[in-house]
Amino acid sequence: MFKRNNLILIVIIILVFGCLLLMPEGVSSRLKVIIGSVFLPIFGISSSVHKVTDSTINITTPRSELLSRIQKLEDENRRLKIDLMQMKSVWEENRLLRTNIGWAAQAPWRLKLARVIAREPSLWWKGFHIDLGSKDGIRPNLPVISPDGLVGRIGEVNFASSMVILLGDPKCRVSVVIPEANDFGIIAPSQAEFFSGRYLDLEYLTKRNELKPGQAVFTSGLGGLFPRGIPIGRIVDVRNADGLYLKARIEVSANLNALELVWVILQ
């Protein structure tokens, strides 16, 4: 059945790959970037297909619809300008107060828009690839957000693309705060999630009486990776995990399955 020479060759191949499994994460990550570069043309094609689709949609959309959309956007733009004016005065007030009590000033976020070009192929992990890489100043662990809230963090970075590890992946644990209950917890993958991908577990909660469904969940800023105050979602239900802690199920604000554009916080 198996010839001796073939068997030796297969044992050698398995041993080599066994050694690959035990390599340090940094080396393994660099090797991944090198091997993954064979898929750069695919990422390029995927990105181009999105652009062509967008331009085709723009061409085929009726003029009346485009005009009404422009009108809506102009209205929204005016409203946002007023909000921004108000925010600027609040920002200035905040800066002055921080200076008075000797707190470090908060720097505004530097954001970079990215397009989702490919998705995680395996069952076990949650992630996608974006069209920004080291050439755009992207580094591992930078936070990724959408207008609805936190999305995840940057994992491996290639020259022209990067992998985003999504909320709910075991490699993306986030410390969160529930301001209404004044409680802290950690986001974990949901054990009962089915299809939607919108529910996550929140672990290590302690405030039994204060936690209620509907309360908003934000990043706590603890841990240093994610800035404080990014919305994540809302509590759906709370249950007992063990004698000491509570566990809550939260519905994530951002629809992680349907994202096409995301923002990377560079600073």
Binding site: L21, L31, F39, P121, S122, M163, D169
Partner: peptide, 22 residues
């Protein structure tokens, strides 16, 4: 192919190669 797959996934590099061969 296992290496190709792992390089675009969050898998540990080499894990798919071993499972494909086995």
């Amino acid at each position: 192919i296992g290496l190709f797959f792992d390089s675009v996934s969050a898998n540990v590099l080499g894990v798919s190669s071993i499972s494909f061969i086995v």
